[in-house]
């Protein structure tokens, strides 16, 4: 037992959970506002990783020293742009059609991004190694090793989550977002421009997924066009576990997911693959509204 459940694994789990948190926040925000499972969200994360890859390699080839903050800004911007474009082209025309239609186009967008990236000759379907953006350092405290990557991952996601919490709770835009998620028609009557709030939601969600993409690229330096599928499913599971549509729930769910996945993988790699699915089934069986979600009756 001591070999599996130790502090080192806990730290690895928190690190993984931070990355999941950034992805699942986008899922939960979009779901909260437009009631859509955005299948393409995992692919926004992939876009972020590739954007960083190209920027860093471009800079390295020209021997330009590029600030890390700029790389983050650029690839968060790229993911946000793709997210907004997907919303504009594929989701917005279907806003008042049956909900299933937008779910199907979301699947189409996801496939399009994956296969378009792997079909493009300069990207291709194979693995690429992510350049070393930050030099790795390992701090040893007792018998625990903490890499500076873990610190970066946790710090970046903490900063972004604090920013999001501030935005949602303290600003006018955040108030409008909460209003739209509660009642679209009433929000519109109050003079809120629903479409621009939805666009902002996609922008933030996409940017967070892009940040998760760089963090994943730094930490697990192998990127490929299908890298978003599994983290996407796991982050969605985390959002459901926390209560979909609930922002603190997504954060809590992600850390639970990350930690349980690390422990399960240490125990048995097959179990590590399946743990997300098992959690999802158990949550749906016993508490479909999630840990922090509220039971809502369906209205006619």
């Amino acid at each position: 037992m001591g070999e599996i459940f130790n502090l080192q694994q806990l730290i690895n789990g928190i690190q993984l959970g931070s990355i999941y948190a950034l992805i699942s926040l986008g899922y939960t925000m979009v779901y909260g506002i437009v009631r859509l499972i955005n299948f393409a969200h995992g692919d926004f994360y992939m876009v972020g990783a590739y954007a960083a890859y190209f920027i860093v390699n471009f800079a390295l080839a020209r021997h330009v020293n590029i600030p890390v903050v700029f790389v983050f800004a650029a690839s968060m911007g790229a993911s946000a742009l793709i997210a907004m474009a997907a919303n504009r082209i594929a989701y917005r025309p279907l806003r008042y059609k049956p909900r299933l239609s937008a779910l199907i186009t979301a699947l189409g967008v996801s496939m399009f991004l994956e296969y378009f990236f792997s079909a493009l000759p300069f990207i291709g379907p194979s693995f690429r190694s992510f350049p070393e953006l930050i030099t790795q350092r390992i701090f040893t405290i007792g018998n625990i090793k903490i890499s500076n990557y873990a610190i970066v991952d946790v710090a970046v996601s903490a900063v972004l989550m604090i920013f999001l919490t501030y935005l949602v709770r303290r600003t006018k835009v955040g108030m409008a977002m909460r209003a739209v998620s509660q009642d679209k028609d009433a929000a519109r009557l109050m003079g809120i421009n629903i479409e621009s709030i939805i666009t902002i939601t996609f922008l933030i969600g996409g940017a967070f997924a892009g940040a998760a993409g760089i963090l994943a690229g730094i930490t697990y330096p192998r990127i490929y066009p299908y890298m978003g599928i599994l983290p996407g499913i796991k982050a969605f599971t985390a959002a459901v576990l926390g209560g979909i549509g609930n922002i603190p729930g997504a954060m809590l769910g992600s850390y639970i997911m990350g930690i349980s996945e690390t422990f399960a993988t240490a125990y048995n790699s097959l179990l590590g693959e399946g743990i997300a699915f098992a959690i999802l089934i158990i949550v749906l069986l016993f508490r479909p509204q999630g840990l922090l979600g509220e039971v809502t009756a369906e209205k006619v």
């Binding site: 082209i89 025309p93 189409g108 296969y115 378009f116």
Partner: peptide
Amino acid sequence: EWRMVVYAVLLIMIML
């Protein structure tokens, strides 16, 4: 892979 790109676009177009 372009074959799958065609399917993806087809799926989106049908829905739209």
